[in-house]
Amino acid sequence: MHYLEPNEKFPPITEADEQGLLAIGGDLSISRLIYAYNHGIFPWYDASQPLLWWSPDPRMVLFPEKLKVSKSMKQLLRKKKFTVSFNTHFNAVIEACAQIRRDGQHGTWITREMIASYNSLHKLNIAQSVEVWENGDLVGGLYGIYLKDKNVFCGESMFTRVSNASKYGFITLVNKLKEEGVKLIDCQVYTRHLESLGAEEIPRDEFLSYLGFSS
C-alpha cells in the first residue's frame, strides 16, 4: 500500500488493491482534491482512520438517460411535494450529511477537515449542493463535485429527514444535469438503493474514459 507524503503525487490507479484502495495519507488540499476527482480518485475514511484514497473497479455510475423513477415518485413530482434549490445552503447540507447515522457505520466519514475543504471547493463553484424543502424546513439534500468541463458529476453524500426527500432531490438534480449535457454521474460504489434508481457498475477503464484518461 502506498503511503503519501503531504506534497507527494498519487501512484498510478492500477496500483489500487482489490477493494479499490489506492493510497493512504497526504492531505485534503484544494489542489489535491481537484486532481483526485479529475482522475477518478476520491477520499473516504472516518475520524478514527488516516486519510484513505479510493479508485474502485468496477465503478458505480448513473447515465442520466437511464434514471428510473417509480410511479410513487412520479406522483410526488407531479404534486410538487417538495421545493428544491441548488447551492443556497451548501454548509447546511454537508453538515446534515455528516450527522446522519447510517447502517453499518459507527461514525461519520465526513470529518471536520473534509467539511472545511469542501466548503472551499463550493466557493470555487466546484462542490455543489441540492436542498430539499418542506414548509420552509430543510428536509433533505445532497452534494457532490461538478466537473463541468468533462460533463461529469461526482455524487458524494445525501441525507433525508422526511421520507423520499433525498430521492426527490436526486431525481430533480439528474434531470437538471441531463439538460446541461452531463453524460455520467459518478456514484462511486454499489448500493441497492442506487441500483434501484438506475445506477450500474462499469469497468474503471470505461469510467476513466469519460474523464479523458485511462489507467
Rank of each mutant, 00 (worst) to 15 (best):
L76R: 13
N135D: 11
A47C: 02
L147K: 08
I185V: 10
K79W: 06
R32C: 10
L67E: 04
Q99G: 04
G40Q: 06
N7H: 14
E180A: 06
I30G: 10
L194A: 02
I202C: 04
I24Q: 11
K74P: 01
G25E: 13
R112Q: 02
V93K: 09
I94N: 09
W53E: 07
Y37S: 09
E180I: 08
D57S: 07
I171P: 10
W53R: 03
M60P: 03
L142E: 14
W44G: 00
Q105K: 14
I100K: 08
C97W: 13
K123C: 11
A36S: 07
R78T: 03
R204N: 05
E65Y: 12
V61R: 14
E134P: 00
E18F: 03
L4R: 12
K81L: 04
R102H: 10
H193K: 02
K81R: 03
H39R: 05
L22R: 15
S72Y: 06
L4S: 13
I171M: 02
V84C: 09
H193F: 07
G40P: 10
N125E: 13
A199M: 04
N91H: 15
D17R: 05
G198A: 05
A96C: 07
V174E: 10
A23T: 12
T160P: 00
F82G: 05
V69G: 07
A47L: 14
L28H: 08
K80Q: 11
G40T: 08
L22I: 11
F153I: 01
G107F: 00
E18Y: 03
M60F: 11
S85M: 05
H89N: 15
D186I: 10
S85P: 00
D57P: 10
K176L: 13
Y45E: 01
R192G: 03
V189L: 14
A127F: 06
N87D: 15
L124E: 06
L21V: 12
L138S: 11
L21Q: 12
R204D: 08
I94M: 12
T111M: 07
G141R: 02
N38Y: 10
V152Q: 00
D103F: 11
E95V: 13
E180C: 06
M60E: 03
I185M: 15
N164V: 00
S29D: 10
K81I: 03
A23L: 05
K176E: 15
G25H: 09
E15V: 03
S70G: 01
S196K: 08
S120V: 09
L124F: 02
S55P: 09
V130D: 11
P50W: 07
T191Q: 13
E206H: 09
S166R: 11
A116C: 05
Q49P: 05
L211Y: 02
G136S: 02
V69L: 06
S48Q: 08
V69R: 02
M1E: 13
K80T: 03
I30N: 12
